[in-house]
Measured scan of single mutants.
Amino acid sequence: MKVIFLKDVKGKGKKGEIKNVPDGYARNFLFKKGLAIEATPANLKELE
């Protein structure tokens, strides 16, 4: 799953980066803790 990092996550990504991460990791950790959001076309446009 492609995500946009909202905060730095040690060993995974830095704020503003767009990366592919495992689906479970994104849903169960990154999204729940507010560390990242899904890289949807709308979210990507908002980032620019």
Score class of each variant (00 low, 15 high):
residue 32 K to P: 15
residue 9 V to T: 04
residue 48 E to S: 13
residue 2 K to I: 14
residue 15 K to F: 06
residue 6 L to A: 02
residue 46 E to F: 14
residue 32 K to F: 07
residue 32 K to V: 14
residue 48 E to D: 11
residue 45 K to W: 10
residue 47 L to W: 15
residue 35 L to T: 02
residue 40 T to N: 09
residue 36 A to H: 00
residue 38 E to I: 08
residue 38 E to F: 05
residue 42 A to G: 12
residue 48 E to P: 09
residue 5 F to T: 00
residue 8 D to P: 05
residue 19 K to H: 11
residue 6 L to Y: 03
residue 7 K to A: 13
residue 24 G to V: 12
residue 20 N to P: 07
residue 31 F to E: 02
residue 11 G to A: 06
residue 11 G to W: 08
residue 43 N to L: 11
residue 38 E to K: 10
residue 10 K to H: 13
residue 25 Y to P: 04
residue 44 L to H: 06
residue 35 L to R: 03
residue 1 M to I: 15
residue 16 G to N: 07
residue 15 K to L: 07
residue 19 K to Y: 07
residue 35 L to W: 13
residue 45 K to V: 10
residue 26 A to N: 02
residue 48 E to K: 10
residue 37 I to S: 04
residue 46 E to M: 14
residue 27 R to H: 09
residue 18 I to T: 06
residue 48 E to W: 10
residue 2 K to G: 06
residue 32 K to G: 05
residue 21 V to P: 00
residue 23 D to V: 15
residue 29 F to D: 05
residue 28 N to K: 11
residue 29 F to I: 10
residue 14 K to D: 05
residue 12 K to Y: 15
residue 13 G to R: 01
residue 16 G to T: 02
residue 13 G to A: 13
residue 19 K to W: 08
residue 27 R to N: 08
residue 11 G to L: 05
residue 8 D to N: 12
residue 29 F to N: 05
residue 35 L to F: 11
residue 19 K to Q: 07
residue 26 A to F: 11
residue 17 E to Q: 10
residue 43 N to I: 12
residue 22 P to A: 10
residue 16 G to Y: 09
residue 11 G to Y: 09
residue 13 G to V: 06
residue 41 P to E: 14
residue 25 Y to A: 05
residue 9 V to F: 04
residue 24 G to I: 12
residue 1 M to Q: 05
residue 7 K to H: 14
residue 39 A to G: 05
residue 47 L to E: 07
residue 9 V to H: 04
residue 5 F to R: 00
residue 34 G to D: 05
residue 48 E to Y: 12
residue 16 G to R: 03
residue 4 I to Q: 03
residue 36 A to L: 01
residue 17 E to Y: 03
residue 44 L to K: 06
residue 40 T to R: 05
residue 18 I to A: 04
residue 28 N to M: 11
residue 15 K to W: 05
residue 27 R to L: 12
residue 27 R to F: 10
residue 37 I to F: 04
residue 16 G to M: 05
residue 41 P to Y: 12
residue 8 D to G: 05
residue 3 V to M: 02
residue 43 N to K: 08
residue 1 M to S: 04
residue 18 I to D: 00
residue 15 K to G: 04
residue 38 E to Y: 07
residue 24 G to D: 15
residue 41 P to A: 13
residue 34 G to W: 07
residue 32 K to H: 08
residue 5 F to I: 01
residue 21 V to T: 03
residue 1 M to Y: 06
residue 46 E to G: 13
residue 19 K to G: 08
residue 21 V to M: 12
residue 29 F to H: 10
residue 24 G to Q: 12
residue 30 L to N: 00
residue 18 I to H: 03
residue 35 L to A: 04
residue 32 K to I: 12
residue 1 M to G: 03
residue 20 N to E: 14
residue 25 Y to E: 05
residue 45 K to N: 10
residue 7 K to I: 11
residue 22 P to D: 10
residue 29 F to Y: 15
residue 25 Y to M: 06
residue 17 E to M: 06
residue 3 V to W: 02
residue 20 N to S: 13
residue 17 E to K: 03
residue 27 R to A: 06
residue 13 G to S: 05
residue 44 L to G: 04
residue 29 F to R: 05
residue 28 N to E: 13
residue 24 G to L: 14
residue 2 K to T: 14
residue 26 A to L: 09
